[in-house]
Nucleic acid binder design. Structure first.
Lengths: 225, 225
DNA sequence: GTCTATACGCCGATAGAC
DNA sequence: GTCTATCGGCGTATAGAC
């Protein structure tokens, strides 16, 4: 399909390294960071290569010494984020067996990612619909599927163990959790009233125990009350 | 700030009506609908006026007989949606006094809106970040604030009545509910496995009663157990 | 209400000097 | 690694005939 070389994970890869050793160029990384901020603020398409170059204090033509296209830049923004988040999820699964604890931890990971990967998550939210139409970004769909599988597995395990109510749809529940976390990037501001930790604990509380104070009806498949 | 004339609600308005009676032109409405679908599918910026015209079987120049700019078209898409949703919320508040019932009804309204306003909601989700930078769309911010006030009021009322747990942040809770509903437009497909009703009931269940099966710790300010 | 024809700027990207 | 200079294309929008 594409001509990309895959490394590390099965989902994403780094491309067009300029140094002979294969090490990342710091200059290049810096440019990617500047571009990511612009993409997040104005959208991918509304950001021009001239603006990116301006931000870096060079001319637009000079950008093409580092990247062969504007899409290569956003590709790097997104794949870096995806590599990181998937690695974190895997580590959470490895360190616990209780589905409720794993799920809580993955929620915490999500909110904790808002700050370091704010720009990438914003681009993912706003420009995913546009970017997905290019085959070069097929790996985004693959990564999404991999993440979904990880979550749904844990929700089903929790239901089988009698920890979670059996009358909710695992896939649907996953989507709602996922969406709630990532979309928070729209209003979350580092240093604001709420830090990522408080956000996570707030959400975990409502997610597991609910908003109501009264009696509950909880049908379960296993360990019924 | 702008030269727009406001009608109906305090938040949105219709503009540039062409008929002398002030009635909406059906031709114009049809063009808006076609454009909305394209905006939703490809993003506002990635959609060209030539594509909109193609879809309608006319040439791009002819579009300017109906609209004075591309932004006017998307403006009409968004304001129509906002007028409708705010009217529905108001009617829900008027027909019930129990905060839990009002909240449930507003959740149902949200999910029920996914289908008829799918395109508008998608544009709102994906292009809001871009559109908000133009002063002509300031009314979007105002409408958002109005909706927030309606929700937060109900959550606080529920807490005061001892119906909702007191240890959650009303504003934060509103944002999470709102985001969960609207972002569903990304994966919701009319005629799919889940209809808007099932979605709403599923979410209401988890929202009020939680995902867990065990005992809960529920601090309340009023009517403590 | 649509078409013909076109203005005019900005877009991403390239070639080659330094 | 950056600059100078530039290309071809497509973007929104307009003027005026029909």
């Amino acid at each position: 399909m594409t001509t990309r070389k895959n490394s590390g994970t099965a989902t994403t890869a780094k491309r067009q390294r300029t140094t002979p050793t294969g090490a990342a160029s710091e200059r290049r990384d810096h440019l990617v960071k500047l571009a990511a901020e612009l993409f997040a603020r104005k959208g991918f398409q509304a950001t021009t290569v001239r603006q990116i170059a301006d931000e870096a204090g060079i001319l637009s033509g000079s950008l093409y010494h580092h990247f062969d296209s504007k899409e290569t830049i956003v590709d790097e923004v997104l794949s870096t984020f995806l590599d990181d988040i998937i690695a974190r999820y895997r580590s959470a699964i490895d360190t616990s067996t209780d589905a409720r604890e794993v799920l809580s931890e993955m929620v915490r990971i999500g909110f904790a990612t808002l700050e370091p990967h704010r720009a990438a998550i914003t681009v993912m939210q706003n420009d995913w619909n546009y970017l997905r139409q290019f085959e070069r970004f097929n790996y985004l769909v693959k990564a999404e599927e991999e993440v979904e599988q990880i979550w749904v597995e844990q929700i089903k395990a929790g239901q089988a163990a009698g920890l979670f109510r059996a009358d909710v749809d695992p896939k649907l529940t996953y989507r709602m959790i996922r969406d709630t976390i990532w979309v928070a990037v729209r209003w979350f501001r580092p240093g604001g009233r709420l830090n990522p930790n408080a956000l996570a604990e707030h959400y975990i509380t409502v997610l597991f125990d609910g908003l109501a104070t009264g009696e509950r009806t909880i049908p379960t498949s296993a360990a019924a009350g």
